[in-house]
Each structure stands twice: as structure tokens, then as C-alpha cells.
Amino acid sequence: MGSGNPAMRVARLALLLLIACAAQADAAEYMNLRGGKFASVLPADAKNADVVVAPFRLRTVPVTNAEFLAFVQAHPQWRRDRVAQVFAESRYLSQWADADTLGTNARPDQPVTQVSWFAARAYCQSENARLPFWNEWEFAAAADATHADARSDPTWRAGILAWYAQPNQPLAVIGGAANFYGVRDLHNLVWEWVDDFNALLVASDSRDQNDPDRLKFCGAGALAMRDLDHYAVLMRIAMLSSLKAANTTANLGFRCAKDGTGDNR
């Protein structure tokens, strides 16, 4: 096999480069989640049915300021001084010192916030990923450290709710405790975009209403939700459904997801 053969060395180097390229595009860590039948607070049929979550992979931590900075450097059309208004409002990345400088108000390991849905989506595409769907986020966020679904545990619920009760806390850095799936920071750090943020509060039945006023009400959003004790999750839904795709807020970040194989857990 002549390992000294220059052609073979070039070939091997090329192969290594290829692997390195592929690895770089996937640098962020993702966990496999098996999905399955899940009692979402938003029933699949807007009445009572469980949703079926397909196997998926979820980023272990939200995207950070440092990671988003690298993204806008590679994709300058997403710099805050160049982005088209249709994709992001004027507050986009306004916590940064400059269009390509984090500065003192934005730590590299804090989750990036003040990002629009369009920008979050574009970032995830750069990671060969997508935003998670609401049911995927909800599925992963139902777990505590040792149970896949801890939602019936009142102590756990109270612990999560406590975070929402203290608004305007300074944004912490990523790296909270891992949950059952090895995913971190789903609670107690930042609100997160989902791909179908504009699917959450659609009326339960928009079909048999002929009265224009009722149709309008229907568009504004009435929805059959179950498990109304689950305030923390309902607050997320209420917040997400109040947003437009170009909006940004100081507490709203995102993580990415991918379709999965269902190998693990």
C-alpha cells in the first residue's frame, strides 16, 4: 500500500479535510430523543388527542452570543446593520456593542437574544438543522433530571414557575443541569423560538363558522387547551403566539433541532 506514496497522502489528506468540513458544520452537540405519543397541552385535534412526536435530535444548549457572532460574520446579510427589515425589527441584536462586536453587555456564553424567527431559522440552517417544532420543545422540556415526563410532579413544576415569577433577572450563561435526555437550559434561562410559533393559538374550529365576526375572533385565536395547571408551558405558548416573525425580545433566544433516527432512549 506504500504509505509514502504522495498521491495516497494527498488522497488521505483530502479525505481528512472532507471529514473536518463535515464535522465543523455539525460542531454543536445534539441529543437523540425518541419521541412517541405525548400529552401536549395543545391537543393534536384541538380537543383531547395525544400528539405523536417523531424521533428528533435537539441541541443540548441554546445558541450563544459567540456562536451567533460567528454566524453573522460568515453571513453578513444577517448583521444588524444589513438585515432586511422584513426579517428583523430594529431591536435585532441591539444588546451587542456593534454589528460585529459583542461588547460588555453581551457575554460570549450567554444565550443570544434579540433575534427574530427568520434569523433563528437562518442560523439553524447554517448548522444543517432547523428550529424545533413546538411539540418537540414541549416533549424535551417535560423531563426532569431522572424522568422523561415529570410534569405531574408539583415540586418540579413549582421550581420552574419560580423563574417566571422573577422577571428582569440578568441573563445567565448556558450550561444548566442536564435533564433526562442530556438537554440543558430548557427552563430557567431564556424563552425560545419554535419553528411553528404561528401555529399555536389557532382556533379549534375555523370551518363551521359563517359569521364574519366569529371568523375574525377565530383568527385572533381561541383554542382548546388541556392541563391548564401547566402555567409555565402555557406562558410560553401565550408569549410565542403574540409574536410576529420579525420581532425580537431581550429574553427570547433559540436552539436548533434535526430530524432523528430514534436510536437512543
Partner: peptide
């Protein structure tokens, strides 16, 4: 706003 329902129909504004 829109979401797909299991029966193939959609809720939408």
C-alpha cells in the same frame, strides 16, 4: 397562523 390537524384539514386564520 395555521396548524395541520390529524384528519388532514387545517386550522388557520
Amino acid at each position: 397562523q395555521y396548524r395541520a390537524l390529524p384528519d388532514g384539514s387545517f386550522n388557520h386564520s
